[in-house]
Amino acid sequence: MEENKIKPAENIVIIGGSAGSLDIILKIVPGLQQINAAIIMVLHRKSSSDTILVDLLTVKTKLKVKEAEEKEMIVAGCIYIAPADYHLLIEKDCTFSLDVSEKINYSRPSIDVTFESASEVYGPHLTGILLSGANADGADGLGAIKQNNGICIAQDPSTAEVPYMPQYAIDHVAIDHILTAEQIKDYINNIV
């Protein structure tokens, strides 16, 4: 059967973004090739705009774009969007789970929550990327990724519409790479 062939992604890239991050995402996504990783996007936004984001990205890439569903297995070559108003967590069996508990850093979904939970499962096979934003969300999560030997990337704050979020992470965590949108795209395309 077809299902038997489905294997969970070996590598994942989680992109966290807040204010000003959509422009950067629209610069990264169109240049992505068939990649050996799953991409998960955790973006702060109004709670009603779910399908808009999926629709917007779908027309920009050949990769499959969909909202992350609970109990869904994470597979390579797919871009998953964290649903609005839920925290997105990763289970040991490489499936998603959702959680409506308290906001973290005034945010649900919180980037920290997804970074931290994924770091335990994916260890060195996880890259966390933090983009533009006006919030401290994501920095603690990058710390957890680092602790579990994953890779931490922050958008170059000088290229960010709102530099606070990547800058806060750079000031608090030993970031591996500080990159522009173009460099982030190349980094993801080169994951093997």
Binding site: L89, E91, K92, S97, D99, S101, V113, E116, S117
Partner: peptide
């Protein structure tokens, strides 16, 4: 229970 959420709690 889903373990990721329970552990976080």
């Amino acid at each position: 229970y889903s373990k990721a959420s329970l552990k976080r709690r």
